[in-house]
Lab assay of single mutants.
Amino acid sequence: QIFVKTLMGKTITLEVELSDTIDNVKAKIQDKEGIPPDQQRLIFAGKQLEDGRTLSDYNIQKESTLHLVL
């Protein structure tokens, strides 16, 4: 699992595989929060994550926290 922190300070827990693409992750956030993926920007280690890449491409591990910017 990974964590996604919103600017409102809310933390969302997502069940993911490290082979999941950023697209997949955004879809899971949409399922939980109702935010359309095209409005989501995910940040990790100061970098904006690109849709076609996977979590492992960015060296994101289990229990990592991503930041969601709208």
Rank of each mutant, 00 (worst) to 15 (best):
S19A: 04
D23Q: 03
Q40T: 08
A27L: 03
K10W: 04
T13E: 13
A27W: 10
K10N: 05
I60Y: 04
Q40A: 06
M8D: 15
A27R: 03
E33W: 01
E17W: 05
T13D: 12
D23S: 05
P37A: 14
S56T: 08
K5Y: 12
L14I: 05
L42I: 07
L49K: 00
Q39L: 07
V69D: 15
E15C: 06
E63A: 10
K26P: 00
L14S: 01
T11S: 11
I12R: 05
G46M: 01
K26L: 15
K62T: 13
E50Q: 07
S64C: 08
I12W: 07
L49I: 13
N59R: 10
L14Q: 01
P37S: 10
E17S: 06
N24K: 03
V69M: 10
Q30T: 04
K10G: 03
R41N: 14
Q1N: 13
G34H: 11
T65M: 12
E50S: 10
L70Q: 15
N24L: 03
E63W: 07
E15I: 04
E17F: 09
I60E: 11
I29E: 00
P37V: 11
V16M: 03
I22Q: 08
L18N: 02
S64W: 06
K28E: 10
Q30F: 06
R53L: 03
K26M: 13
I35S: 11
T54F: 12
L49M: 10
T65N: 13
K47M: 09
L7G: 15
E33F: 02
L18V: 04
K5L: 13
L14T: 06
I43Q: 15
K10T: 05
D57W: 12
D57C: 09
D20T: 10
K47F: 15
I29T: 02
E33C: 01
K62F: 09
E15L: 09
L7V: 15
H67E: 15
I12C: 04
D38Q: 04
K26A: 07
Q48A: 08
Y58G: 07
G34N: 10
Y58Q: 15
D20N: 07
Y58R: 02
L49G: 01
L18Q: 01
K5I: 14
D20M: 06
I60D: 05
T21K: 12
N24E: 09
E33A: 03
V25R: 00
K28L: 10
T54I: 05
P36A: 04
I2A: 01
D51F: 03
G34P: 02
F3G: 02
F44G: 14
P37N: 11
D51H: 04
L18A: 04
S56E: 12
L42K: 00
Q61I: 13
L70S: 15
F44H: 10
E63I: 02
Q61H: 03
L68W: 01
Q1V: 10
Q1C: 04
V16H: 07
K26Q: 05
Q48H: 11
T54P: 06
T54W: 04
T65S: 12
K62G: 13
D20I: 11
I2N: 00
D57P: 00
E15R: 06
T13C: 10
Q30P: 11
L68M: 05
E50N: 12
D38V: 04
A45C: 11
K47P: 02
V25Y: 00
T6Y: 05
G46S: 05
A27Q: 03
K28M: 10
K47V: 15
I12H: 14
P37G: 11
R53Y: 03
D51W: 02
P36F: 05
S64K: 05
I2Y: 01
A45T: 09
V16Q: 05
D20W: 11
V25L: 02
L42M: 13
